[in-house]
Amino acid sequence: MSAMLRTVNRVLLGVVGLVLLAVGGAVLAVGLGASPPSWWIHDSRHDVLLSASERTRWRDEGWWWPTVIAVLSLLVLLALWWLAAVLRRHRLGEILVDTGDGAGALLRGRALESVLAGQAGETDGVAQAHVRLTGRRDAPRTRVRLRLEPHVDPATALDELTTRALAQARGSAGLRALPAEVRMKAVKHKAERVS
């Protein structure tokens, strides 16, 4: 399903891009002096997109402005839905676990994320851990953000994360590999006055 949505998204973006490129290129060509075909919306480089009579033609009709507002609102809602769908798909919903019998099982991505974040957060000196799974069901990847206490050595925290949390997750899910992108940031404590 995810591959199909990705394909539809790419095709839709490609079609919209080609239409915008063709229309924009044709308008630019006419504006630079090229002679347009007889069916084109512009007659010459001095022609406007909408004449005064075309712009004011429906203004006095009672249905015109509500229709324009409804269509534009619908386009904005569709664009926001599309954007949300594209951004949401970056998180992996489920992981295909190799059970050894050839059938496999599905593991919820959020469950593995919360287990990984919990294990990483239990590491000494880690104030907060956030994990997100990306990639494909059969080849997941992780993005880990760690907020470290000032006294913690980042190399030690990274070693703990890879040898404990990530290794256990890889082993329990039966994955050959679980690549991780780890970002670390130190927690900044406010200075307190001591009297």
Rank of each mutant, 00 (worst) to 15 (best):
S2R: 12
S2C: 02
A3Y: 02
M4L: 13
V8L: 12
V8C: 12
L13G: 11
G24K: 01
G25C: 02
L28Q: 12
L28F: 10
P36E: 07
P37W: 00
S44Q: 08
H46L: 07
D47M: 02
D47A: 09
L49C: 08
S53M: 03
R55P: 08
T56V: 06
W64G: 03
W65D: 06
P66C: 04
V68Y: 00
V68A: 10
V71W: 00
L75F: 10
L75S: 14
W81H: 14
W82L: 13
W82D: 15
R89C: 04
L96W: 04
D101S: 15
A103N: 11
G104E: 08
A105W: 03
A105L: 12
L106S: 12
R108T: 13
R108I: 09
R110S: 12
L112T: 08
S114T: 15
V115N: 12
A117F: 03
Q119N: 13
Q119A: 11
D124T: 14
R132M: 08
A139P: 05
R143D: 13
L148K: 10
E149P: 08
E149Y: 04
V152E: 06
P154A: 10
G171W: 00
S172N: 11
A177W: 00
R183S: 15
R183N: 10
K190W: 02
E192A: 09
E192T: 08
